[in-house]
């Protein structure tokens, strides 16, 4: 009885495994067919930092209008996510993270040639103040006061580490109520008046379109480096796109959405 049952058990298992394999193959085949319907245009995959969202979407439109044979695909995410994706083997032709450190790591792992890197835009920190300035915030020094509701980005993301660097450089011991995981989440809480102030990028103040007041900060600049990847199948096209970003037309897009010129 036992042996017979064992045999039966084994048969179930093999049946199950071949059945599963068959189903998987069918599913994969279906997925591949779905993917192969492309536009016939030259595809350029651009990985960009989330803070570049508005600028890169406008740049995509402008570049595609001038070059109808090109189809730019944007992948916008936090800079560390972009790094993980590229190191994980994702296909990218151009990478534009929000800080040089991330680009250096890509150079170390031979994903990017150090000689290929050029700066396409810069940005600065600014204090976003809730409408009406309920917390009476005038400068970063006010972040040491405990009664207003104050936010920064988490130190794990660039806007947070830059804010804390600024605090320690100025000898400010901040009294913080929340460390938001990304800059747009922080900005939203200031716009809604849940926070009296938060430290964001200058470009975010412009993106808020009057919903917050901005106070410029005398903090170091942030650079956005762009580079063609080593594995790019379209290096010439990728070069042309970066050149466009650095051209007067491209730079106008960046300054329009609140970045500083490169």
């Amino acid at each position: 009885m036992g042996a017979q049952q064992d045999k039966l058990q084994v048969r179930w298992q093999t049946e199950a495994v071949t059945g599963a394999a068959r189903t998987l193959i069918l599913l994969l085949a279906a997925a591949l067919t779905a993917c192969s319907t492309d536009s016939g245009r030259d595809e350029l995959v651009v990985f960009g930092a989330a803070s570049l969202t508005d600028a890169l979407m406008m740049a995509e439109l402008a570049f595609e209008t001038a070059n109808p044979e090109v189809d730019i695909k944007l992948n916008l995410a936090g800079s560390s996510s972009l790094r993980e994706q590229v190191l994980g083997g994702a296909r990218a032709d151009v990478v534009i993270p929000a800080n040089l450190g991330i680009m250096d790591e890509l150079v170390e792992r031979d994903e990017v040639d150090a000689g290929q890197i050029s700066i396409v835009a810069t940005n600065g920190l600014a204090i976003a103040v809730a409408p009406g300035n309920p917390g009476n915030i005038d400068s970063a020094a006010d972040f040491a006061r405990s009664e207003p509701f104050l936010g920064v980005c988490h130190p794990a993301v660039p806007c947070g580490s830059l804010a804390y660097e600024h605090f320690s450089a100025r000898g400010i011991t901040p009294s913080i109520d929340t460390e938001e995981p990304d800059v747009r989440a922080l900005l939203t809480k200031v716009i809604e008046g849940e926070l009296d102030a938060g430290i964001v990028y200058e470009s975010d103040i412009v993106a808020a379109d009057g919903a917050v007041d901005g106070i410029l900060m005398d903090a170091p600049e942030v650079s956005y480096p762009a580079a063609v990847t080593e594995r790019s199948s379209q290096p010439e096209l990728a070069d042309r796109f970066i050149a466009f970003l650095r051209s007067p037309d491209g730079q106008k897009i960046f300054t329009d959405v609140g970045f500083r010129q490169r």
Partner: peptide, 24 residues
């Protein structure tokens, strides 16, 4: 994270700690 924010020792629960740690 949307309603209560994220601050160690006050509002940062395990899932929030995982999320910010993923960045760094």
């Amino acid at each position: 994270v949307t309603f209560a924010g994220n601050l160690q020792g006050r509002t940062q629960t395990l899932p929030l700690a995982v999320f910010v740690a993923l960045e760094s």
